[in-house]
Design a protein around this nucleic acid. Structure first.
Lengths: 219, 219
DNA sequence: AGCTATATTGACCGATCGGTCAAAACAATG
DNA sequence: CATTGTTTTGACCGATCGGTCAATATAGCT
């Protein structure tokens, strides 16, 4: 575990905070809220413990800030879809976007997963409120696609869950995936192969015809 | 008669150990290895803390024992499949078995998830060894099914990952799922609906024709 | 009964937890 | 230079951590 040294020369406040957030994200992702210690975060950031609290106030404030930062990264997903959209293209983009997000922010994704595993003590309001509305509105559009005969009549919420779980798996279970595949970590080709596999199975499984681009498969 | 008494003794001891294991599984699942405290486990079990250590030796021993117990529960899955098996039936059983296992042992499943999330410090050998072999052997059979034209040529390992992730999602992310669906918890009908959805999408997505059982689908 | 082995548990240990604080270091302005 | 405001950080606090231990209680056997 390499500690990232804070560059104190040109270290503005924003830069120091970013260093702390990145270190904290890693430690929280690995050990969860309770299992993470401020000392471990401080070591990871290369700063004394008191400095962490000076900038972040408390462990809980730091943790909530990380949760909010991670969720704001997901805001753009499935933002502009309509009943007239092409399901194949939308779901394909959804899969790829989710997959890329997980690869881009693996620590943040794991942090979120650990929070849900713990029973979502800091996110229950968000899940039952904002996120639930998000799912409901998207589900309504997907349902409309089914009515138009663009795809099979499947429960749209379960379809969203399926895409969530299938993509998140590769970041949150990376230790399992890499252990089984015998790889140190996934490269871009791996990610692309996974995306094509998921697109093939899920789109075909939902009875969606690919409009323009048809993708070949590699076994 | 001594055996009988000894059995009663063992039964008494076994009962206490079972109580401790159940309590520990719950606490470890929620907070992870580091976040869980022996005091919390003791409170959950209704026993003094020293009693936990008397029976389990140490926190790590208790934790490893729980991991082993959980993995032994998965041993029967996909045990007896051959190149001559019917893919539709096998995968359908796989989905349902995984789903039922998650519902039956939600704490154990979460415990396992937390272990993987933490980077599998206690399971890396198992993942890169035993489990990897398990996956490889099953993947070989699935690949044979593809060669026989029973299903599309998809990467069998990714297919296994897909079924793992899609089913585990409902136990490990239960806080998210119930929050979004607006339910306290999933009942048998919910589980059945999820299984049917997954069977529909995954089997159809892999180009598997259902042999005997009737399917309301246009091929 | 007495004896032995196992169970039970409060008290305690050093280490570490999240958090506070004040002294020191630093930066900016006059 | 002096003054003021911001950062830095070691020292420290009470609480809790995993783990030990000895005193006590219980049970089984002769």
């Amino acid at each position: 575990m390499t500690a990232e040294i804070a560059n104190q020369e040109n270290a503005g406040r924003a830069h120091i905070e970013h260093t702390i957030l990145r270190a904290a994200e890693k430690v929280f992702a690995q050990y969860g809220y309770r299992g993470a210690s401020l000392q471990a975060i401080a070591d990871q950031a290369g700063l004394p413990k008191a400095n962490i609290l000076y900038y972040m106030g408390s462990k809980q404030t730091l943790y909530v800030r990380l949760l909010n930062r991670m969720m704001s990264r997901w805001n753009a997903v499935l933002e502009d879809i309509t009943p007239e959209s092409d399901p194949g293209r939308v779901l394909s983009d959804f899969i790829r976007t989710k997959m890329v997000l997980g690869q881009r922010y693996p620590e943040g994704s794991k942090l979120f997963a650990a929070e849900i595993l713990a029973g979502a003590p800091f996110l229950s309001d968000y899940l039952a409120g904002e996120l639930r509305e998000w799912v409901a509105s998207r589900a309504a559009i997907i349902l409309e696609w089914s009515r138009q005969g663009k795809m099979d009549e499947v429960d749209p919420r379960l379809l969203i869950f399926l895409i969530w779980s299938a993509t998140q798996h590769y970041t949150e279970y990376s230790a399992q995936v890499t252990g089984i595949l015998g790889k140190e970590m996934l490269d871009n080709d791996d990610v692309d192969a996974i995306c094509r596999f998921l697109e093939h199975v899920i789109l075909k499984g939902c009875g969606i015809q690919l409009s323009s681009e048809s993708r070949p498969l590699s076994p």
